[in-house]
Every structure is written in structure tokens, then in C-alpha cells.
Design a protein around this nucleic acid. Structure first.
Length: 423
RNA sequence: AGAGAGGUGUCCGAGUGGUUUAAGGAGCACGCUUGGAAAGCGUGUAUACGGCAACGUAUCGGGGGUUCGAAUCCCUUCCUCUCUGCCA
């Protein structure tokens, strides 16, 4: 959530930056400032009147104690008159505040200076490419054929149990998921992250704090009987650990990692994007999350990008890093780097990680602050990234490591899987 | 799921309608004291909004109500603990 005070002081800059995010209604900036002016004015008159009521009430208390009943009664009537003016003011103030709140949440985060202009994924900026293009034998297959050939994942039975997009992993396929989760967590822990195993459902307040509500309600599964949402990513429960918290500066940076299943309704996807494991409603992911000093978030973002890169290198996958353009970025992010791995069998790049700096957008929304050395309260910055999402990594390894006789494994995974080959 | 007891500041804890401007204690910070430390003494120690400031307003789990006035009374909701039930 953006702060009105910031918009007030940087009106033109804010508009320019919102335009990079392709936010259509730039006049809303002026609207919000006008609403805030009205709010201030109402609050000032309300406070003044309430102060009178408070003072009079205290006086009544004193008169009652002294037994001067008649005077007390007179004063009571006077205050009752004030109250009739106070009540409508109170209602109006609540209205204006709600309206202001509902309006300001419509603003996406402002993009970082490094974010390229552009609207479509084609306009993302290639930052780096690494690893080697795998050479496959003639007759190599895509993962959807391989997993059925070796009986690793059964989509039909998953559909029978739940619906399409809920894969059923079987035997070595299931064990491989477990091995990947374990490897990713260990890799993150070794880099200084603390492991959490969070709840997989969250309440409304948590979903609001990280920006899933009110906008993206339709993208989450909603357990209406209890009004809980199935998490679309571990970012939601883990970041919310620090909702409504004032940290000490010395506690920063907070580095957290968590495994969780992720549930996404993904309305409106179609075609080859959804084939096999490319897009599913339930998948496994290991996430990294940091809460840091605002002066450090640029630097930490680069560290997180380097961390994920190292992880992909260790898996021997060809990868590229993209800096997302304004139009392709998420709502709450100030800057995002996407990682894609190359699938030779599909001849396409698959997104496996997204690392973002949210700056104070989430922390302001969830009131996660810290007290600096001077004793001043400031909003921290939050960042997160996948390290890593499993299905497409699974797909890429299965495809790129296939041989005529089976599927090999990257060296680092062999001890986790307990064999040299997947099949 | 049922019955009961609770939720007060960084923590413990008093407070059953009006000097509560939330007692008292602990912790923490600073100062005095000391050769140094401890003890002792003194001062300070929540957040948000408005205001140049003085200060004002709000907040005793959340929301709503009664009242001139609510931490205190009423309604509602969430959470914690104890017992019972059910369950991996």
C-alpha cells in the first residue's frame, strides 16, 4: 500500500511511475490527496469537540463528588447537545476513512528505477544467461510422455480424486518431490535462512497484508465455512509472522525459508501453457523471505538473485534471468527478477522462480516496523523469492536428463534421492 | 464439539461507572554514586492520527452498544488455558 504522505510530496514522480506499471487512472492520485485533506479537516473538528465533551464530563464527575447535583444536571444537558453534533461527524469521518482506504489500496507498488518500460513478457530485459543447452538423443520426449512412460505422475487419477491440475505423484515421482524439497531447504538453511513450516490456510487479515486481497480473491481457494484461504505461496503465512510487529533494528535482517504446497485457481489459462506440469492448481514450493532495513533491500535483492542462481547452477540446468518490465510485474512488487530454465524437449523456457523486492508496500500494509538507532519507527522492507518451485524443475530435470534407458540425476540430488538415476 | 476460567503497557500484575493523567513491581536506557561492578538513589521508558509547537484525539484482544462519562456494564466475535468428547 502506498502512503498518502509520499503521494503528497511526490505527486508527479508517483504518476510517472504508475504509468510504467500501466496503471490507468492517474487522476486517482489527486483524488486520494483530496480525500486525505477532507479526512484531516474532519478529524480536527472532531478532536476539538470531543475535547470539550471530555472536559465537561470530568467536571460533572467533580460536581457529583461535591454533591452539587443541580449544576451537574445542567452541564449534562449541555454536553448532550454537543453530542448531537458529534455523532454525525463521527459517522462522516468513518465514511471518509473507509473511502480513502478502499481507494489507496487500488494503487500498485511503484516500480524501481531499474524497471524497464514495456507491457508484455517480450519486453522483459534479459539480464543474464547461464548453463549449457542440453543435447538430447533422437526421440527424446517431453515430460508429460516421460512421466507416464515411467509412471511417475498420474494426472487422470488426480483428476478423478479432485479435478484437473491436481497431480498424483507415484513411487519414484513422489520420492523425487521429497528429495527436491529437502535439498532446497538445506541449501537455503546453509545460506543463513531459518526454516519455518507455516499453516497452509490463512485468514482474511493475512491475505490482505501481503496483497492477495482484496484484488486477487478469485485466484485463491476459499474455505467459506471458516473464511480461510488456501495459501497460493508460503510468502503469505511467513511474511505475516511479522504483521503488527515493531522490531528492534538489531533483529534485521530476518531470513526465512519455508516449504509449502501452493494452491492456485489460475483462472483463464489454456493451451500448451497448461500441458503436463507446466501449470497446475496444486504444487510444491520452497520459498525464501527476508525482512530488512530499507537501506539494504537493493543489495539483499541482488544477494537473493545470486542465491537462486547458485541453486540452479548446482542442478546443471540452463537458465536465464529476466528483469520484468512494468507491465509484466506483480501488483505489490517494486522490482522482480524471473528465472527460467530451458526445456530442450519442449523447446521453451519455463519460469521456475520469481524474486522480488516489495520495499515498504507489504510492510506498510501489515504494519511491520522497526525502531532505528535514533528511536524512530520506520517501515521495514520485505523481499521474497522461490527457491524453488518444484513442478517445472521436475519437468526440466526429467526432460534434460533423459537417456535412452532412463532418467539420470544431477549429482547434488543423488544423495537426497538415494540413487544415481531417477529411473 | 460441550462446560468453565481468562485476555490490561516490553513482561508480571492491580483495577467492578467519575483526580485512572491505568497503581505497584520487574526489565531496559540514561544520570548520580563507585577504583570498577553490584546495590542504592534519580529520571525516562507504547502506538496511530492531527498540530510549527504547546498540546489534542483514539487505543486495556477485535467490532458494536448503554451513559454526560466505560479497562469496568450489555451484545457480538476472535484467541488462550482447564475439564469432557472426538480424532492422526
Amino acid at each position: 500500500m502506498l502512503q498518502v504522505s509520499f503521494l503528497r510530496q511526490n505527486k508527479e514522480i508517483a504518476k510517472q511511475k504508475l504509468a510504467i506499471k500501466h496503471f490507468a487512472n492517474l487522476d486517482l492520485v489527486d483524488t486520494v490527496i483530496a480525500m486525505d485533506d477532507e479526512r484531516k479537516q474532519l478529524q480536527a473538528s472532531f478532536d476539538e469537540m470531543q475535547a470539550k465533551v471530555n472536559a465537561a464530563s470530568k467536571e460533572i464527575g467533580g460536581l457529583m463528588a461535591k454533591g452539587e447535583k443541580e449544576q451537574a444536571e445542567n452541564l449534562k444537558n449541555e454536553v448532550a447537545g454537543l453530542k448531537t453534533q458529534l455523532d454525525p461527524l463521527k459517522i462522516k469521518m468513518a465514511e471518509v476513512e473507509l473511502q480513502l482506504q478502499n481507494t489507496i489500496v487500488q494503487f500498485p507498488n511503484l516500480p524501481h528505477d531499474l524497471v524497464p518500460k514495456g507491457k508484455t513478457p517480450e519486453e522483459n530485459e534479459l539480464v543474464k544467461q547461464g548453463g549449457e543447452t542440453p543435447t538430447l538423443y533422437a526421440g527424446a520426449q517431453a515430460h508429460w510422455d516421460l512421466i507416464s512412460k515411467y509412471n511417475l505422475v498420474d494426472f487422470e487419477t488426480g483428476s478423478k480424486i479432485t479435478g484437473s491440475g491436481f497431480p498424483l505423484y507415484i513411487g519414484k515421482g513422489a520420492k523425487f518431490q521429497r528429495a527436491l524439497v529437502q535439498y532446497f531447504l538445506d541449501f537455503n538453511i546453509a545460506a543463513g535462512y531459518t526454516e519455518y513450516l507455516p499453516p497452509f490456510m490463512v485468514n482474511e487479515a493475512s491475505a490482505f497484508a501481503t496483497g492477495q486481497l482484496p484484488d486477487k480473491e478469485g485466484q485463491m481457494y476459499h474455505a467459506t465455512a471458516d473464511n480461510f484461504y488456501l495459501i497460493p505461496t508460503a510468502e503469505v503465512p511467513v511474511t505475516n509472522i511479522y504483521r503488527d510487529v515493531v522490531l528492534k533494528e538489531t533483529e534485521l535482517p530476518l531470513q526465512m525459508t519455508a516449504y509449502s504446497p501452493c494452491f492456485r485457481r489460475e483462472a483463464g489459462s489454456f493451451g500448451k501453457d497448461v500441458r503436463g506440469l507446466n501449470r497446475v492448481h496444486q504444487f510444491e514450493k520452497v520459498e525464501i523471505i527476508q525482512i530488512v532495513h530499507p537501506d539494504k533491500s537493493d543489495e539483499v535483492l541482488n544477494e537473493m538473485v545470486a542465491h537462486v542462481e547458485k541453486l540452479l547452477v548446482s542442478l546443471g540446468l540452463q537458465y536465464r534471468i529476466l528483469r520484468l518490465c512494468g507491465g509484466d510485474m506483480g501488483f505489490a512488487s517494486a522490482i522482480t527478477y524471473d528465472f527460467e530454465v530451458y526445456s530442450a524437449a519442449q523447446d521453451r523456457w519455463l519460469e521456475v522462480s520469481s524474486v522480488s523486492n516489495f520495499q515498504s508496500y507489504q510492510t506498510y500494509r501489515m504494519k511491520c516496523r522497526f525502531k532505528d538507532a535514533a528511536g524512530k519507527i520506520q517501515f521495514a522492507h520485505s523481499l521474497n523469492g522461490s527457491s524453488l518451485a518444484l513442478p517445472r524443475i521436475f519437468a526440466a530435470i526429467v526432460e534434460n536428463y533423459q537417456t535412452e534407458v532412463g532418467i539420470a540425476l544431477p549429482k547434488v540430488l543423488q544423495p537426497y534421492f538415494g540413487a544415481e538415476n531417477l529411473v
